[in-house]
């Protein structure tokens, strides 16, 4: 019975079965976390001194101060304008871009070019794009609109392009067989198959762009974000809170509308 005694000891299988590899991973992760924490110079004195500042901050934040309402309103309207214009531009340009980024429609060099654009536009966070455009074109909603349209195009080019790649080729073939030219083949063979996705993505895009349009003002690209940044700089935290509340409200309302509309489309 001695041989069976070892089998009565039961242990759960580890996530990583090889014990050497498991311990190597654990040690490496721990070592990394310790190194990174150390590298950040997290000294407790500084953390502690942050606490009274935080208390003071919250103290000055409440109650929110809505007295600059006209300024807030102007910022909100500008954000809305930026979102609408950039969304319109990007959903129009997304049509040729996503056709170009779809392997089954596009020719090789157009495909590679479109894909390269999509990768670049998707890799940079909107804020980063915004600050470059602000440096190129100056402050205001114009660089903001460009930023939103640029990042939105990356998003649409990828998702709509993939939708086009997944269409039923038979329907396209049938329209080609009628002798229709390239444009009409897209119109009858491709467009009906991806139209619901296109409309859904467009609404989602408005949602994303409105969200981003409330932020990119922080680097001077127009919209309510500029007012928020100024309020912080002038230590007017009660005004900042008021603006923040308005931003959160806009974001939530738009999220609600967009999910309702997209739900109805399906």
């Amino acid at each position: 019975m001695s041989s069976s005694s070892s089998s009565t000891v039961w242990k759960r299988d580890h996530f990583i079965k090889n014990p050497f590899l498991r311990w190597t991973v654990i040690i490496l992760v721990t070592a990394y976390v310790l190194y990174a924490l150390n590298d950040m110079n997290l000294n407790w004195a500084r953390m502690k001194s942050g606490l009274p500042r935080a208390v003071d901050f919250f103290h000055r934040m409440f109650p929110p101060d809505f007295s600059r309402w006209t300024m807030i309103q102007r910022g909100v309207l500008e954000s809305l304008q930026m979102a609408i214009i950039s969304t319109t531009i990007s959903i129009i340009l997304a049509v040729p871009l996503s056709l170009g980024a779809a392997r089954n429609i596009s020719v090789r060099w157009v495909y590679l070019l479109s894909r390269a654009f999509v990768v670049v536009a998707r890799s940079f966070p909107p804020i980063l794009v915004a600050i470059i455009f602000v440096k190129a074109f100056g402050f205001g909603p114009f660089p903001g609109i460009l930023t939103l349209a640029f990042t939105a195009l990356g998003f649409m080019g990828k998702l709509l392009g993939e939708a086009i790649e997944n269409i039923d080729p038979g329907q396209v073939e049938a329209i080609r067989a009628t002798g229709a030219n390239w444009f009409k083949v897209q119109l009858y063979g491709v467009a009906p198959q991806v139209l619901p996705r296109y409309v859904g993505l467009s609404i989602y895009l408005l949602d994303i762009n409105l969200r981003a349009s409330t932020i990119i003002g922080i680097v001077g690209a127009g919209g309510i974000g500029g007012a928020l940044f100024n309020a912080f700089h002038r230590y007017e935290y009660d005004t900042a809170l008021a603006i923040l509340i308005v931003i959160i409200a806009i974001v939530l309302v738009m999220e609600f509308i967009s999910s309702k509309v997209r739900g109805r489309l399906q």
Binding site: G170, I175, A180, P192, Q193
Partner: peptide, 23 residues
């Protein structure tokens, strides 16, 4: 005329028929 019909699924019968005159 195709094996899997290859109609444009989301369009109406009339649109499918008229697509024969697209040219």
């Amino acid at each position: 005329i195709f094996q899997e019909y290859n109609l444009i699924e989301r369009l109406t019968v009339m649109e499918n028929v008229l697509s024969g005159r697209l040219g």
